[in-house]
């Protein structure tokens, strides 16, 4: 059962990432803690999007929508940082 294996894999990957993020936050990484945490969060988001939400298999349009949201968030964050 291929689909089931894919979802189970995703689920365990998520739990491992959760353990990693909690674990890493207990270590002093000298200022990199936040970056590591955010990177792990992004990895979790990718796992959910690809394995649970089937982003890869849904045609070009959903991916285009996600890319647009990413670009617009970048605009929002980037120009606000400059504006300060």
């Amino acid at each position: 059962m291929n689909a089931l294996r894919k979802l189970t894999f995703g689920y365990f990957a998520l739990l491992i990432l959760l353990a990693l993020t909690v674990g890493s936050s207990l270590l002093d990484l000298g200022g990199f803690n936040s970056s590591v945490n955010l990177a792990i969060a992004a990895a979790k988001a990718v796992v959910i999007a690809l394995l649970f939400m089937h982003l890869a298999g849904g045609g070009i349009l959903p991916r285009l929508a996600v890319a647009a949201a990413g670009l617009w968030l970048a605009i929002l964050f980037g120009l606000t940082v400059i504006g300060r």
Partner: peptide, 11 residues
């Protein structure tokens, strides 16, 4: 939200 709120500087 979880790392952003809960995991600031736990070390």
């Amino acid at each position: 939200l979880f790392p952003v709120l809960y995991l600031i500087n736990r070390a």
